[in-house]
Amino acid sequence: MSSYVSLPIFASTLRERYRLEEPRCRSCGTLNVPARMACIECGRGDFDWEKLTGRGRVFTYTVIARGGAPTEFDEQQIMSGSLVVAIVELEEGAKVVAQLTDCDPEEVRVGSPLKAVFRKLYDQEGVVRYGYKFVMDEERE
């Protein structure tokens, strides 16, 4: 089975996945999400890490039908049926792809306010992989 992220490699990204800390380029000021070795905008490699607010808005989204997600999410789809995935535009400007959870797919719109939550992503080799998903932010319009 290829297309697999090993535990040590996954562990090296926990700062981003658990605490939403991401690097900002010292040269051009671009926030890089996820982190890179060379800045996504200017190609240089010096960064200052900062903690993000976790607030963002739906840039675009989809509802993936049962069985349509990657095999790592089969167990989740057996329980939840469909799975909502969005490109989230973060308050700080960068975009990330993440699942929307605890929400009614019918209520999701482009522009809906979101906030990040800590959730289980998938299981592999008996180890749970955690990271961020997003929920609708009821406190904002």
Binding site: V5, I9, Y61, T62, A69, P70, Q76, V97, Q99, Y122
Partner: peptide, 28 residues
């Protein structure tokens, strides 16, 4: 498995979407 491996595996596919989802988001 194969149909999902030509996007970004680490952050895109393993967030929960493969190509139908990606193109659906582009369509939306």
């Amino acid at each position: 498995l194969w149909l999902g491996v030509s996007g970004d595996v680490e952050w895109e596919r393993l967030a929960g979407t493969n190509f139908p989802g990606i193109y659906a988001m582009l369509a939306r």
